[in-house]
């Protein structure tokens, strides 16, 4: 980061280091320094997020197509921009008692289309492909591979059995098959946990590195 070496960065680096320390202090106890930094961070990121969406939504999808693009000159293309704007504006009716209901229409649009969009691709990626790869030809597998495959199959079946909601009825205790499912789940969760510890620790490594960079640049060592 060459930017750290620029003129006048010394004081900024000190401020950033102090802010970072105030965030870290939260693991010990909530304090006013943390609260201040948290509020600052919220303001900055909300502002940045606003700019990004303003740019991607308002400028690129409304302003430029309406006023600067030669492509949008027929009625349909203009309506294609005006209609969603009107739908979006309906959100503001929620402050009125009388017309408040209108705010449900844009929501209905988003919910309906959103629900529809997910069905097809999900079936393809997460069901059909996964089923296809659960079906294998045993003839060219070693004995160990077949054993592993059968374990995978047992894990799939027992875990899915555990999650049956109605077919299993309202018995109070988990039964044998469901317990096998739990057993496999715990192995899987343990693996996720162990795997994740690594990722979480590397975050701290990165932060330590950031401290080092900023501190070194204050003393002109970088």
């Amino acid at each position: 980061m060459s930017i750290l070496r620029e003129k006048g960065m010394g004081i900024i680096n000190i401020i950033v280091i102090l802010l970072m320390l105030s965030v870290l202090s939260f693991v010990f106890k909530d304090n006013h320094f943390f609260k201040f930094t948290e509020r600052l961070l919220v303001g900055v990121s909300a502002g940045y997020g606003f700019l990004i969406i303003f740019n991607a939504g308002f400028i690129k999808k409304i302003w430029i197509p309406l006023f600067y693009s030669t492509g949008t000159n027929n009625f349909f293309q203009v309506m294609n921009i005006i209609l969603p704007c009107l739908l979006g504006l309906l959100f503001f009716t929620s402050f009125s008692k009388k017309y408040g209901f209108l705010a449900k229409y844009p929501l209905a649009f988003l919910l309906g289309t959103g629900a529809g969009v997910e069905i097809g691709p999900r079936i393809e990626t997460s069901i059909m492909r996964q089923i296809n790869s659960s079906v294998v030809d045993f003839s060219n597998l070693s004995l160990f591979e077949i054993f592993n495959y059968i374990i995978i199959l047992i894990a799939i079946v027992t875990t899915m059995y555990y999650f049956l909601f109605i077919v299993r009825g309202n018995k109070k205790r988990e039964n044998f098959i469901a317990n096998i499912g739990i057993f496999f789940m715990m192995i899987g969760f343990g693996a996720s946990f162990g795997y994740t510890i690594m990722g979480r620790l590397s975050l701290l490594i990165e932060v330590v590195d950031m401290f080092r960079e900023r501190i070194f640049s204050i003393f002109g060592l970088l």
Binding site: Q130, A191, S192, Y195, T196, M198, G199, R200, S202
Partner: peptide, 11 residues
Amino acid sequence: VTAVMASEYYP
């Protein structure tokens, strides 16, 4: 991917 997501992608 990050370590957290990795076990998710094994299937």
